[in-house]
Each structure stands twice: as structure tokens, then as C-alpha cells.
Design a protein around this nucleic acid. Structure first.
Length: 559
RNA sequence: UGUCCCAUGGUGUAAUGGUAACACUCCGGUUUUUGGUAUCGUCAUUCUAGGUUCGAGUCCUAGUGGGACAACCA
């Protein structure tokens, strides 16, 4: 066994350091804490891979915790979708937790704070509270309720809890430091009233804890050793620690928050709020529209869990602002699918080819290898006959030497079949080619071993037999935005950069074996790309989504 | 006129005071019954200026640039 030391990222370094000084290996525990207010996206996937990956690496439990403290935004369907996505990625959580399960505990801790004079009920409007907080460069000032007596605070908080106090009349604030350079320490609101039904607790509660008062405490309850979040929460760390200071029991593990940079992906958005807008405004059909960078969208697009995990692993984790090019994601999925996807033939922009010297009513079933990258993938039979479709762009009447495809008077190999030669072509009145007449070399059959079959001809084309082809709908996707970073412009909103051509729907012709595919199966349409069966497929009509095209060095050469 | 975070090829990440590495992208070869795959090659005075040190991408100081912070959101 060779002990190859993989370099550690800064998160792993923090853990290793703690393992040497303060933590036992058994104490390690992580969590992934989404708010169920939307669907998970590729950015969350990175966080999932980070946390669950650490769990696997250190053999430590990882909880899935729903940060469900705001009934105004959260829904059960989002909880269900999130669980499905995490499972689909292949991870299992130690415990399924809900911040709402801690409402009672959080409430009694709030009482503790009030009794210690460290929290008070403020009865001002949110505008007044905000203006008293000052600005990042100016300190805040105390409001009139800051020194309310404990008994009065207790009584008012009780009214908030029972619903006796109208919604929005009061909030509970921690009494910390209005002078602090950190705005979050200027007496942050820890409870607000919300007379709204919660997807889990119904109408039991009229008060709901704020994020800061919930997150660290939930980590503490679950005895999470390391609570990793994105950089924007860095200023929250001081508050996170202050709250913990108020209630931590020295005999228990004290969680620590550490921050990493969110992964930004080019030509798309990684913000639930903004993605929700795309759904609401009908830019895309749904959260799982294959153009969406959501996990469900990527799944429907044909991405595999391995592709996403390798992507996350490949880009790593850091602390600086970043913009990862989508080509990195595309590389990951091609790399994975190249090994796994069976090859099939389909023609997306057909032009008819007639083999003039081929028998009229004959159909030959030719052997075709499913995947040369995987011997175990076996082979299948594809029908060959006199009339075929090939790709329109695979034929030119005349072309230079760089064009390795069919041209008049020249030969080309039909994949898994014969070598053909273009003799002539027909055109319509507009000059469009309507049919190509070819002859074939009967002794050149693929795999027959004859001398003719071994001839080297530059260029191999995919094709389908017209009679036996099945008609399929194919959806071609392009990036959702024309700008690499659509939501970072000061003068323009991201909606101004929407790519009008992000979806193109066409009809293609595929070989018969496509019929055997099931929903979410992915194949390679040879020479074209990877395509996956969309859930909208019916008995009558198959629908394919293009996951990603093949690398195409010809396309660049051609123009 | 604040506090905090960050700065390594086009992109992302490594190098833990000792020869700047890996992957993607781009470009150019080789192989190929997918213009795919595989494989080989090209692409960096580590933001700047000082300092500490035998030695600095790494430590210190200042500057420059980018980012976060003023929700009864998370």
C-alpha cells in the first residue's frame, strides 16, 4: 500500500489541526443545513459534497438539517425535493433534523437571556430599529425600550408567544453592543412574530427565531463539531460565538463556524432567490427545467451524480471570489458519460441517401458495438437498407481536403456498415440538396475482415435506415445567459442577459434500439453528443434532452 | 470616510520558509471505423513596494485591487 498524501484544502487543515489539539476523532460531526424555500442548485451540490465528503473521509456523521424558521417562505414540497436531491447524489445523512424541532429549547434559552438582562422586547417599528442601528461607518444609538425591566420583557414576550400581541407589534432583541463595528452585534433581533402556518408546526407557534439565534444553537444541540457556511456569513461568526457563550455547558462540545467561498458558475445563476424569479416569470418551465443549474435540472439534463461529485471535487474549496467556467462542468459530465453511455446512431438534420446498387427491398442487420470504452457493454444490431438518412452537414458537392466527409466522387465509411461513394445529388428549385445518390462497396462491410473492409477511408459518418428509423423529439439546450456573470453588473439586471436561444426543439431520426431506453437513461448519439430520455416521453413520442455536445474540433476549424 | 475577508497562468485549486505543481480551457502534433476517446507538447518574472531570512508565493509593514457588512430573510 502506497500512502499517497493528497494535499489538504483549508477546511481539512482546520479539522486536522483540531484533531491534534482539541477534538477527538469521535467528536467530529457535520451538517448540511438548507432552508426549504426552493430547490438545491449546483452551488449547494458543492456544499453537500464538502460536508458529506468530510463525513466519509473522517467516518463522521453528517446531519441533514432543514433551517425552517420562516414559515412565510418554506414549504413541504421543498423539503421533499431537497431530500430527493441529496439521496440522488448518493449521500445518506445520519439524522434528519429540523430547526423547528428546537423551537421549545430555543424559547427557553431566550427566557434565560431575558432573565439575565441580555435580551429585551422592542416595540418600535422595524424602520425605527433600523435607523437606530446606524450604518457600517456610524455607531447605533439605544432605543426607548432598551432598558425595559425584566418582568415587563417577560410579560410582553409571553404576549408575543400566545398571539395576544398583534403580529409585528414587538420583537425580542439581544442586548449586546450598539457601538460595535459589526452591525450584527448592534442588538440583533432574535424573535419576531409571524401569524402564519408553518409546514411542520402548524399554528402552534406565533413567534419564530431568527437565523442567528437558531443556527449556532442548532449546531450545539446536534453537537456539530464544524459548521461550514459561505463567506457572506463571516460577520455572523462573532454573533454565533456570543450566543454560544451565553449557554454553552463546558462539558459539551462547542461547535465552530468556518466559512468558504461560494462557487460561482459562469453563464448561470447560483442563487435560489434569483432562480425562483426565472421560474416565476416563465423564463424556464420549472425548477427542473434542463437549463436550470438546479440539481433536479441537471438530473433531467442527463448529468450523473458522479459527474457532479467529480466537478465539486475538482474545483475544490477556497476563500476567494471565483467564477468557474461552465466548460469545467461540461468536462466532468463528458468524462463520466464517455465511460458509461452506450453509443447509438441518430440523425438530427436529415438528408436522404440512396444506395443505387443496393437491392431494393433488402434489410441487413449489422453488428454494432455499444461502447468501445467498455467491453462489457456488448453489441446490438442495426438495420441497413437502400435508403438512409445522414446529417445534412456531412455532405458537400465540393470541399477541400480538410473536409473528411462525403463529397461528390469521394468515399466515406458509414459507421458499422459499408464504404459508400457519392455519385450525384438532386436539388430543389432553391438549390437545397434533396437526395444524394451513392454506390456502396459490398465487400467493405465493417468487421467482415475482407481486404476491402480494412481499407482506410478518411471520415466515418453516422446514419439511420429511413424505413426503420424512429422519429424523436430532441431538445437542444444552450447556456441560459449570454453574459458570464449576469448578476454582477451594477447598471444592468440579470434578466437583461437572458439568452433567447437557450432552447431549440427539433425532430430527429434514431435507430430502433432507442425504444429500449427508459426515462433518465443517457446515450451518446455518435458524433453528436450525449442525450438523455426526458420524463415527458410517452408511448407515442420519445423526447431527448441534449446533455452536452461532444468536443468538436471540426466546428472550430470550419469557421 | 469604519470593521472584516481575499489576492498564484485565461479558469479553478496545490506547493505548510527550500526546484511554482495538478486539472480545465485555448492552440499545435500522434493514434483512431465517432473531427469523440486516448496520448504528447506550448502557455506564470506568484498584484506592487519595502522589510525579516542563507533562502519568501508562503512571515511582517504599507499601498493597490476585489469582496462582505446598515432584512422583523437565510
Amino acid at each position: 500500500m502506497s500512502e499517497e498524501k493528497e494535499p489538504l484544502n483549508f477546511i481539512e487543515q482546520i479539522i486536522e489541526e483540531d484533531l491534534k489539539t482539541t477534538h477527538s476523532k469521535q467528536a467530529l460531526c457535520f451538517r448540511f443545513p438548507p432552508e426549504p424555500n426552493g430547490y438545491l442548485h449546483i452551488g449547494h451540490a458543492s456544499s453537500i459534497c464538502l460536508n458529506f465528503g468530510l463525513g466519509l473521509k473522517y467516518n463522521a456523521p453528517v446531519n441533514l438539517r432543514f433551517d425552517d424558521t420562516n414559515p412565510a417562505k418554506e414549504e413541504q414540497r421543498f423539503v421533499d425535493a431537497i431530500k430527493k436531491d441529496v439521496q440522488w447524489l448518493g449521500y445518506s445523512w445520519a439524522k434528519e433534523c429540523y430547526a423547528s424541532d428546537y423551537f421549545e429549547q430555543l424559547y427557553s434559552w431566550a427566557l434565560l437571556l431575558i432573565n439575565q438582562g441580555k435580551a429585551y422586547v422592542d416595540s418600535q417599528s422595524s424602520e425605527d430599529i433600523a435607523s437606530q442601528k446606524g450604518t457600517p461607518t456610524q455607531p447605533g444609538v439605544a432605543g426607548p425600550y432598551r432598558d425595559r425591566p425584566v418582568e415587563e420583557n417577560l410579560a410582553l414576550f409571553e404576549q408575543m408567544k400566545t398571539g395576544e400581541a398583534p403580529q409585528g407589534a414587538h420583537v425580542l432583541r439581544a442586548k449586546i453592543d450598539l457601538q460595535s463595528t459589526n452591525m450584527l452585534m448592534r442588538d440583533p433581533v432574535i424573535y419576531r412574530t409571524l401569524h402564519k402556518s408553518h409546514h411542520r408546526t402548524g399554528t402552534d407557534w406565533k413567534i419564530f427565531p431568527m437565523y442567528d439565534w437558531t443556527h449556532g444553537e442548532s449546531d450545539y444541540i446536534e453537537q456539530i463539531s464544524h459548521s461550514f457556511c459561505t463567506l457572506e456569513f463571516l460577520p455572523h461568526r462573532e454573533l454565533y460565538d456570543w450566543f454560544l457563550d451565553q449557554l454553552v455547558d463546558g462539558s459539551k462540545l462547542r461547535p465552530k463556524q468556518r466559512e468558504f467561498a461560494r462557487r460561482n458558475l459562469s453563464h448561470t445563476l447560483v442563487s435560489k432567490r434569483k432562480l425562483a424569479r426565472l421560474v416565476q416569470e416563465g423564463v424556464v418551465d420549472s425548477w427542473d427545467d434542463p437549463r436550470m443549474p438546479t440539481i433536479s435540472g441537471l438530473r433531467r439534463r442527463g448529468y450523473t451524480p458522479d459527474a457532479i461529485k467529480n466537478f465539486a471535487k475538482g474545483i475544490g474549496v477556497g476563500k476567494r471570489d471565483n467564477l468557474i467556467d461552465v466548460s469545467r462542468l461540461e468536462f466532468s459530465v463528458r468524462e463520466d458519460l464517455n465511460k458509461k453511455a452506450n453509443r447509438v446512431m441518430a440523425v438530427l438534420d436529415p438528408v436522404k441517401v440512396t444506395i443505387t446498387n443496393y437491392p431494393e427491398d433488402q434489410t441487413e442487420w449489422l453488428e454494432a458495438e455499444n461502447n468501445q470504452e467498455d467491453i462489457d457493454a456488448g453489441s446490438r444490431k442495426v438495420p441497413f437498407s437502400k435508403t438512409l438518412y445522414i446529417e445534412r452537414e456531412d455532405f458537400r458537392e465540393e470541399a477541400n481536403k480538410k473536409f473528411f466527409r462525403l463529397k461528390l466522387g469521394k468515399e466515406v465509411r458509414l459507421k458499422n456498415a459499408y464504404i459508400i461513394k457519392a455519385e450525384s445529388c438532386d436539388k430543389d428549385y432553391e438549390g437545397n440538396i434533396t437526395e444524394i445518390h451513392c454506390t456502396y462497396d459490398p465487400k467493405s462491410k465493417s468487421g467482415s475482415g475482407t481486404q476491402e473492409s480494412l481499407r482506410k477511408v478518411k471520415g466515418t459518418l453516422h446514419w439511420v435506415a429511413v424505413d426503420k428509423a424512429i422519429k424523436v423529439e430532441v431538445r437542444l439546450y444552450d447556456r441560459l445567459f449570454t453574459d458570464p456573470s449576469p448578476d454582477t453588473h451594477k447598471d444592468k439586471g440579470f434578466m437583461e442577459f437572458i439568452n433567447p436561444d437557450s432552447l431549440k426543439v427539433i425532430t430527429g431520426y434514431g435507430e430502433q434500439s432507442l425504444k429500449d431506453l427508459k426515462i433518465e437513461d443517457t446515450v451518446q448519439f455518435q458524433r453528436l453528443g450525449y442525450f438523455t430520455v426526458d420524463p415527458e416521453t410517452t408511448q407515442e413520442k420519445m423526447v431527448f434532452n441534449r446533455t452536452v455536445g461532444l468536443r468538436d474540433s471540426w466546428a472550430k476549424l470550419a469557421e
